[in-house]
Amino acid sequence: RGCSKESAMEILTVIGLKNRASSALDSLSQGMRQRLSLGIALLGTPDVLVLDEPFNGMDPVAIDAFKRLLQSLARKGIAIVISSHHLFELDQLIDTLALLHRGQLVAHGTTDSIQEKLGFEQLTEVCLDSELPEKLMENLDILEHSSTTSKHHMILQSVPKNLLNDIVELGIGVNTWREIQPSLIELLCAATGLDRQSIGMDVENSAWLPMRKLQEEEE
């Protein structure tokens, strides 16, 4: 109601349900119903979408499809606000976040700014074909190191600027070289001062939580 058939079909195409246009609601899966709800919201051509627990009841395939749909909408200029307890599903999806725990706002901003406020060091994962010379290893801040006959894996902190060039000049094959970003769960743990197990415990009084107060940036 309130929109043309052409507009409705266009929305169904966007949310990937064009081939189910004539299907009864009770024949749709949970993931399809979530996409349909999103489509109904899109009928008003909103500038902002607010989604509450959009991944509830979805299987992994449906979640992946829904996330790709949200990314497509974001690229079209629609601002999307998501409220969710599924932090794992929000990794690599959001650019700005507000972390809440027991009704308290414990961190907010871009993921990079929150990492900086919480004192996260940049980590780099490196996997090489052969071991580095001892002289080069001595200058590295190595957090983790494991080796096999054909694989040498390291987690490095504060990587020297020319390290990659030095490795290539030595003729050592580089299988992996990537920056490691903390997960949203790790950010929440750091912001509250709790470990992964404690973060999910029921606490009657939120004042019991050892909150780390973030200093607001000076304007």
Rank of each mutant, 00 (worst) to 15 (best):
M211A: 09
I78A: 02
G173Q: 13
S150Q: 11
L93H: 02
N162R: 05
I155M: 12
P133C: 06
E116K: 09
K76T: 13
S113K: 07
K117C: 08
G109H: 00
Q122V: 10
A207W: 00
A107K: 05
I180L: 14
F88K: 15
A79H: 06
C3D: 01
G57I: 05
K161Q: 13
S83A: 13
K67Y: 09
E186G: 03
H145L: 14
F66N: 06
Q215L: 12
S183Y: 09
T192K: 03
D202C: 12
I11G: 02
A8R: 04
T149K: 09
G200M: 07
H101P: 11
S4T: 15
E179N: 11
A62K: 06
K18W: 04
S72M: 09
K135I: 14
K76M: 13
K161L: 12
M201R: 14
L17R: 05
L100V: 07
L209K: 10
T176W: 04
E10Y: 07
K213C: 08
V50L: 15
E144I: 10
K18Y: 06
K5W: 04
L118E: 12
D64Y: 10
E121S: 13
M58S: 03
L123A: 03
S22C: 02
H85T: 10
V159D: 02
L188W: 03
A24D: 10
L156T: 05
L93F: 04
E169I: 06
Q122I: 10
S22L: 09
R178D: 15
N162P: 02
W208C: 14
A207L: 10
A98E: 05
L43Q: 10
E217T: 12
D112A: 12
L105Q: 09
P160F: 05
S37A: 15
G193Y: 09
H101A: 13
F88G: 13
Q115Y: 01
L42G: 01
R102G: 05
L97S: 03
E219W: 04
E218C: 07
M211E: 12
S150W: 10
L143M: 12
E121Q: 13
E204Q: 15
T124G: 03
P133I: 14
L69K: 01
V61C: 05
T192C: 02
R68P: 04
V14P: 05
M154C: 01
D47L: 07
H145F: 14
K151F: 01
Q122R: 09
T176F: 07
L164R: 14
L132C: 07
L188D: 01
N165E: 14
S72P: 04
L136I: 14
L100F: 04
L17T: 04
C3T: 10
